[in-house]
Design a protein around this nucleic acid. Structure first.
Lengths: 172, 172
DNA sequence: ATATCCAGGATATAAAATATCCATGAATAT
DNA sequence: ATATTCATGGATATTTTATATCCTGGATAT
């Protein structure tokens, strides 16, 4: 029963991406630096978020990552499932029918009660995660966190974000 | 995010031990056989349950395991924590302060909001597990499960359980 | 063209879960 | 007392998973 460290990194990256303005992006290498993580490994997780439709990636110079949708529509559950996979934490191995005196399959038609109880608890967990929106996380940080920390985060994003050409509008 | 297989085995064993009468015990080897598990490995988990005060063990011939308290006072949470450990699934690595521009420690006095949200979800998970009593699991099984399965389980316990001498009463 | 950046595969290393074995000691039957 | 049964706990091997790195290829802005 443990979550991989990638989950923490993924959530922090998503929160940081919430600070980029408009269609701008933030390179993965910058985020890796911001959190003191190995870039090669962080890209794996960012990649998973992209595959899950939570992030969008822009290749090429001036490329990077941005959120794929509004922060109100991204929940911690989305991120956790993208990184950890969608399988339940408790997987019933049906060991009740692994003994020497195995009954006919029809005797095991009804689901294992233990599995039912464990799944119920997991639904409660996921429901709680689904209620935690990224917008809430960000708002709470801006409101409650130390001003120095908020300012430093904002400055970092400001420094590394890359504005995306809205149209092909080189100023004329 | 996954639970070890030992959790499933531990819960099934606890449920089976609920069927032994009085102060009787069930040898660990018998339970391993019942579920088709490796005895040496299952003993590890039974050991963990004993250390957590959920089971009692009786050494010697006629020895084995029994529940340490009433089934109403044993929850799935007790068992899961005994096997998986009491640490939370999400451990905040404080990567927010691992970047190159580290602020003074006082700037991180307030807890990381991401950690708070993750812990909240985990509390919901544990609360749900704490509400699932072993007595409920057993009662539900007796009521809902296939009669053949119930009978087979009862017969297995009947066959392997070992009555415990009530006092040191060698008949005289 | 060139430089920058993401995508994805291959691979290496580290850590944890799973599984087995053996020596020890406790309790009991004989 | 002695032998037997069985849990205990340590040591260890095997397998799986997580973590981490590297490299090739493709996309794109300059």
């Amino acid at each position: 029963m443990k979550l991989s460290e990638g989950v923490e990194a993924a959530i922090h990256c998503a929160a940081m991406l919430a600070g980029v303005e408009g269609q701008g992006t933030l390179p993965g290498a910058a985020m890796a630096e911001a959190f003191g993580l190995s870039p090669s490994y962080l890209l794996k997780h960012l990649n998973a978020l992209t595959a899950a439709g939570i992030l969008e990636s822009v290749p090429g110079p001036a490329g990077g990552y941005r959120l794929a949708r509004a922060t109100e529509r991204i929940t911690l559950l989305d991120i956790v499932l993208a990184i950890e996979g969608r399988d339940p934490a408790f997987r019933c191995g049906e060991i009740r029918q692994c003994g020497p005196a195995r009954l006919d399959a029809s005797a095991y038609a009804k689901p294992c009660g233990i599995n039912v109880a464990m799944q119920k608890a997991e639904r409660a967990y996921r429901a709680a995660l689904a209620e935690a929106r990224l917008s809430d996380i960000v708002a709470k940080h801006m409101r409650d966190a130390d001003p120095r920390s908020v300012a430093a985060n904002r400055a970092f994003v400001e420094r590394h974000q890359r504005p995306q050409k809205s149209t092909k509008q080189t100023e004329r």
